[in-house]
Design a protein around this nucleic acid. Structure first.
Lengths: 218, 218
DNA sequence: ACATAAGTAAACGGATGAGTGCAAAAGAAT
DNA sequence: ATTCTTTTGCACTCATCCGTTTACTTATGT
């Protein structure tokens, strides 16, 4: 399994393998996210990566392991983005400004990038790979929700909002801000690259934040 | 294309074909909704329907036409359910009771039945059949949203709520009521048959309606 | 009862896809 | 320069799947 050499250098890898893996994962992410697991052939991936099919099987066990690697990577990336969100919000004094900004950031980060295609893929493949769907939900939206709940609890304790149940309040905030935009985006492929959709989403996020502030005003 | 007989009876169909079509569509709906379009073989459908594969091709042009028929039927059903929702709400005098009931009904109808599996299928196959995803969105959630908006506008005009933008308010209401539950359900197959999930969803719907009432109180 | 239409089972053709084997070419490390 | 590893291209096996054909049986309507 590990590299066999004259001296045991466990952390070494031939740069060609490293390069191949990067090319393949990049291509596989694109193709899988667009066409799903059964809709994508290994030949497709190899062609997209500009690599021979044999090389794909040289780097990855089989198609399923490659798919799992892609999902794991995508989920890890989504988790990193999620953890960065909402960490700084809690210390502000101006609740309205803080939550409006947070709502805008939420909308921008969720409605751009690969979040929506990833959600489409996980949802569509949920029956084949239920573990990944569950893991994603815990580690990406779950983390966002937890961070928002923490911020809202802090505002509540400082008397700036009336928050009985921070977890529920966080859900209300998040879905007021991006629920409609996200739901529509899941069904509308064209929106992925449409910038007008993104600006409309940000506007809706602001108005959602305003509604939240009315509902949770101290 | 039409039935050729001694006399031109255009509306006649052999009862065996009617029966076969019903069996096949029933089976195809089950299998497609669970395994998706490329994940389902015509042999699977024939076996599930208890019918020979040849009969499938006797009733339907090919796999894609069968799939389109299933989606069309499912969307039409969803549309009927959607139209029935929120029609009676607007005339009530007790806004709080009316909206709480509406939220409960929304949660119950969306989180039970085949709505969630249908959404999963349409989202997962959106790249292959974008027209159906768009059509569904207009004709099912879109109709619900329009009905809710109408009801909210009526409440607003009677001074029972403060509603500037009925469409936006309807989105806020709907996503406060069922956004979190629906989003989670898309990723969690087990929830489809879990009754505890449904009761929790109804509770969340009630609390979402309460938040909406705070945000939109007159 | 009899002709017509539909259903069944099984096999088939053609295509595609997953995964392997192999010989030759190209790159990396010493 | 040489040795080891990876990549490549291609052919190949095996399975699956779509859609059709064939030969036969069963149901329907008059």
């Amino acid at each position: 399994m590990s590299t066999t050499s004259t001296t045991a250098r466990t952390d070494y890898e031939d740069p060609r393998i490293t390069r191949s893996r990067a090319l393949i994962m990049d291509a596989a992410a694109r193709v899988f996210l667009e066409r799903g697991y059964p809709g994508t052939s290994v030949d497709d991936i190899a062609a997209e990566a500009g690599v021979s099919k044999r090389t794909v099987y040289n780097v990855f066990e089989d198609k399923e392991q490659l798919f799992r690697a892609i999902l794991g990577q995508a989920i890890a990336t989504a988790e990193r983005y999620s953890l960065a969100l909402g960490e700084t919000a809690a210390e502000a004094d101006d609740v309205e400004a803080a939550l409006t900004t947070l709502a805008r950031e939420l909308a921008a980060s969720v409605l751009s990038g690969r979040v929506v295609p990833l959600r489409r893929l996980l949802i569509g493949e949920a029956s084949r790979f239920p573990e990944f769907a569950a893991e994603y939900y815990d580690r990406a939206p779950g983390r966002v929700m937890a961070a928002v709940a923490t911020a809202l609890r802090a505002f509540g304790e400082r008397g700036l909002l009336r928050v009985d149940d921070p977890e529920l309040a966080a859900e209300h905030f998040a879905f007021l801000a991006i629920g409609p935009s996200l739901d529509r985006a899941l069904f509308d492929l064209a929106s992925d690259t449409d910038t007008a959709t993104a600006t409309r989403a940000i506007e809706r996020a602001e108005r959602g934040a305003a509604a939240f502030l009315r509902a949770y005003a101290a």
